[in-house]
């Protein structure tokens, strides 16, 4: 899922500026699971903003709502009635959610309350870790299900590098060496021969090097 974290409240207050009718919008999908932009976080942010503006002596109306998914226009459509009399929308969705709302409500300013961090999973309660960089060319079949692109600090395809020490990365000894993990996993699977195959230079055009990406499935197009 997409992992995001809330911006500093002072930054969000600055973004509000002189706007007086605000709608804080949450998203029930990824950012709810990573505890940064669900209904509960929306209630906290809206309440904190109301208190902050009262302290500043400003009369600002702050409403709140949470929709199923901010990254699908059909769900964003449901904001129409609440958004129509507002002068600012604050999205607590990921960067995709903010942009979907901006596209749908073209004449209304939309600002992000979150910083979108990465694609990952909760390692334990309150801790999230990166697992995918959406490079567009998955090699997990060759690496025992452990991604060297996202989990190796250098994204090496033929690791480990010389900085791997006792299974840890030279960048930070709290980071596992991805290639050590790959070795251990392939060994457990009795597939160490996978490591003898040299992976060629990666074609990064399927990643961000190819510019903004688009996927089309003709069979699904109406």
């Amino acid at each position: 899922m997409i992992i995001a974290e809330q911006k500093e409240i002072s930054e969000i207050i600055n973004m509000v500026g002189d706007h007086r009718k605000i709608l804080v919008i949450g998203c029930d999908t990824c950012v709810t699971v990573c505890l940064s932009g669900g209904a509960k976080e929306v209630a906290i942010l809206a309440s904190a903003l109301r208190l902050a503006f009262r302290v500043q002596g400003k009369q600002v109306e702050v409403n709140e709502t949470t929709i199923e998914r901010q990254c699908e226009i059909e769900f964003v459509d449901s904001l129409e009635s609440m958004a129509k009399d507002k002068d600012l929308l604050i999205s607590m969705g990921c960067g995709i959610g903010v942009q979907t709302i901006a596209e749908r409500f073209f004449h209304l300013p939309v600002v992000p309350a979150l910083n979108t961090k990465f694609l990952g999973l909760p390692e334990k309660q309150g801790v999230w870790v990166e697992r995918c960089q959406a490079c567009g060319q998955c090699v997990l079949d060759k690496t025992g299900g452990i991604c060297p692109i996202s989990r190796c600090s250098k994204s090496l395809l033929n690791g480990p590098c010389g900085g791997s020490q006792n299974g840890k990365c030279e960048i930070n000894d709290e980071i596992d060496c991805a290639w050590h993990l790959i070795y251990e996993r392939l060994k457990a699977l009795n597939r160490l021969e996978c490591l003898e195959e040299i992976m060629p230079v990666k074609d990064w055009s399927t990643s961000r090097d190819g510019g903004p990406r688009k996927m089309i499935r003709e069979d699904m197009c109406l």
Binding site: E8, I9, S10, I13, A48, L51, A52, V55, Q56
Partner: peptide, 8 residues
């Protein structure tokens, strides 16, 4: 900490 940041 949040209250401090919003002036309480």
């Amino acid at each position: 900490a949040l209250l401090e940041k919003i002036g309480i």
